[in-house]
Structures are given as C-alpha cells and as structure tokens.
Write a protein that binds this DNA or RNA. Structure first.
Length: 367
DNA sequence: TATCCGTGGAC
DNA sequence: TGTCCAAGGAT
C-alpha cells in the first residue's frame, strides 16, 4: 500500500541521528564552558553534580569558586563539611553538597584518590546516580553509555515520538534503553563526548520546551514528532506535584551590639546542616523558648519562600537577647542549646545559609 | 513507587 | 501570579 502524499513520516533510520548530532555539536554546540575541554574526572564530576536540576548560568560562579578553594579531590575530602556547605550556600539541594563531600572521601579512601573508570562503579558513589555516572564515564573515559536527563528526555521522546509517561520509572527505563540503542557499535571517545554534549546542547537550544526550531535541527527528517507536527506533545509526563504551605516562626535573637544568633539545622530535612535562625512551628512556642512576651522587640514582615514541594511563610520575631545567657554555648537553656554562633556583620556570613536568610541578614547586619 | 529536597529563570 | 522545570538522586 503506497504512502499517502500527506504522510511525511521519516523513513530514515534513527541510527543516522548519532553522526548528525555529533557533527552538529562540533559546529554549533557549546564549547567554552569551564568544565569542557578536560577529561579530569574531578572537574567533570563537580560540574555534573552542580548542574543537577540547576541551570548553567547559575553554576558558573559556584564552579570557579569551588575549584579555587578545592583544586582536587583530596583537598575536598580533607575539608570540614561546614566549609563545603558554605561554598554551596545558595545553590540549593544541599544533599548534593553533603554527598559530594562523602563522595570525595570515598574516592580517597576506597579508590586511592582516583575516580573509578566505569559508569557501573561510579554509580556506587554517593550522589552519583545512573545519569551522572553515564555522563562522567562518557566524557572522561569514552564509555559507550547513554545519559538520560531532562534535555535528553525531551530530545529523544520527540525524535522517537515516545509516548510513555515519564512520570513512571518503567517508562523512563524504556526510553533509557532506546537511548542506548541509538549508539553505534563502537563509538570513539571523541564521538561519545560530542554525542553526550550534543544531546544536552540540542535540548537547551533548538529543541526547547516551547517553540523548538525544527528547521535548523540535526534531527530534521528523522524526528517523528516534528514530522507529525506534534513536538508540543512530547515528552509525556503526568505531573502530580502537591504543594503545601508551612508557617515557621524565626527567632531573631539580638544582643545589644546587634549580633544575631544562628543555629545549625538538623542533619535531615529542609536545609539540613545549614545555619539558620531558631525555628518554631508557632509564635507561642518560639516566644516561650526565649524569655516570652517581655523579650519581644518587633515582629518583622513575613517572608514568603517557595521550595519545590512547599511554600514557606517565615515570620521573624526579633527578641532582646540582653537578658539571656550569652556564653559560648548560646543564648538558650543549656539543655536545648544547639551548635551555633553569633554573627555581627556581613563578613561573618561565610556560612552555609538558606537563601532567604542570607538575604534577610544582609539587610539587617552592617557591612 | 511516591515523595522529598532549593533556587532562579522563562513564559 | 502561577506554573513549569533545569546536566537528578536518595529513600
């Protein structure tokens, strides 16, 4: 049965996509990013962790500061966790920083300071999942293995008109297998670098979420979604993000000299391991912990801060700390004293701080 | 499997 | 203003 004239479905093999994308990456892809042009696993690994769920422009400054402070994996492994969190402060998803630190220590202690050279082994390390392991292995060791990040899901689901729901782990695994099938039998190291980078470059430029530029795409003539005019339908992902609102009372304990008391947050949960203000679930509870109503100086305007699953309403209560204990253990009753410190000026804020708190303290403390 | 974990940019 | 989501991983 002959094809109808209106049927514009590509008939070329999707295997042609590999050489086309490799060529496109070399002529049109990104090449000047600070973590490109190296096969040093430490630098590639650091960039991949920072880039998880984080845009390139956000990462650039953090990456250079981090490398300057920790030039190699041994320097990072030897640092205190607090120093790592301080450099990560503001980048978000702080479990990445804690796992980064643990990973560096594992590389030193279990691998003699050299990252293992296969995706399978890399994936056993803290904070390195399947996609990050594949990226490091492809970039640094030329391994024939496919990444599958947000960009690749968009590019390949369109190329193949893959209509599985990527909210499902099973469908994600299917697409991962298809991605692996697009690789030639024996790609060179350079080809794996260009292919891996090309998938991400294409997804972040031509094959954008809205209004992709299919005419300039190296997948033109191969891409099923484009041929069918259905790019907006891919990738398929049923989202079921349920947001909730949480109200936190922040105690702004101020000494007569203006200093503010910060405490380290617990090792799990939101902002784990960062410094923050003493936090309570109600106004009464917070006041009761530090002198009650007579100590109250001012109720600051509430700050609203959006996290992925939660909207935080932060209510700072400024208390007069002059009547409270002010020894090294902190201002509260010794029994509930958490590790913490007084900060007097902005120069004291070289700490792991949640973004909204850094913003608040930069307004309150003198330079 | 579903949920949790930050922040900022794009639309 | 709200929504999506960006080089995801851990539990």
């Amino acid at each position: 049965m002959p094809l109808a004239a209106s049927d514009s479905s590509p008939t070329a093999s999707p295997l042609l996509f590999f050489p086309r994308l490799v060529q496109w990456q070399r002529s049109h892809g990104r090449s000047g990013l600070p973590w490109q042009g190296t096969r040093d696993p430490y630098r590639v690994w650091l960039s991949e962790i920072m880039l998880q769920q984080t845009q390139v422009t956000t990462v650039l400054g953090y990456y250079s500061r981090f490398l300057e402070r920790f030039p190699d994996v041994r320097a990072l492994a030897a640092a205190p966790q607090e120093a790592v969190l301080a450099l990560w402060s503001g980048l978000g998803y702080y479990s990445r920083a804690r796992n980064l630190h643990r990973c560096a220590q594992a590389v030193v202690e279990q691998w003699g300071g050299a990252f293992p050279a296969s995706a399978e082994q890399l994936q056993t390390l803290p904070g390195i999942g399947r996609s990050t392991a594949a990226a490091i292995a492809a970039f640094c060791f030329g391994e024939r293995i496919s990444i599958l990040d947000g960009n690749v899901k968009r590019v390949l689901s369109r190329l193949l008109a893959f209509d599985g729901d990527l909210a499902s782990l099973a469908q994600e695994r299917r697409l991962w297998a298809l991605a692996q099938d697009l690789l030639p039998a024996a790609p060179s190291h350079d080809e794996m670098v260009a292919w891996t980078q090309g998938l991400m470059d294409l997804g972040s430029s031509l094959c954008s979420r809205s209004k992709p530029d299919c005419s300039a795409c190296p997948g033109a003539g191969l891409c099923l979604a484009s041929a069918q005019g259905r790019t907006a339908e891919f990738p398929v992902r049923t989202r079921k993000l349920k947001r909730s609102t949480v109200e936190w009372w922040w105690l702004l304990l101020r000494r007569p000299d203006g200093a503010v008391w910060l405490e380290r947050r617990p090792a799990e949960g939101i902002w784990a391991g960062l410094y923050s203000l003493p936090t309570y679930g109600s106004r009464a509870e917070g006041l009761a912990a530090f002198g009650g109503e007579p100590a109250l100086r001012r109720e600051h305007e509430a700050l609203r801060h959006a996290l992925t699953h939660r909207d935080l309403v932060l209510r700072p209560l400024e208390l007069d700390a002059s009547a409270l204990r002010q020894d090294a253990a902190g201002p509260g009753p010794a029994a509930q004293a958490a590790p913490g410190l007084w900060v007097r000026r902005q120069a004291d804020l070289d700490l792991g701080l949640p973004a909204p708190l850094r913003s608040l303290l930069e307004r309150l403390l003198p330079a």
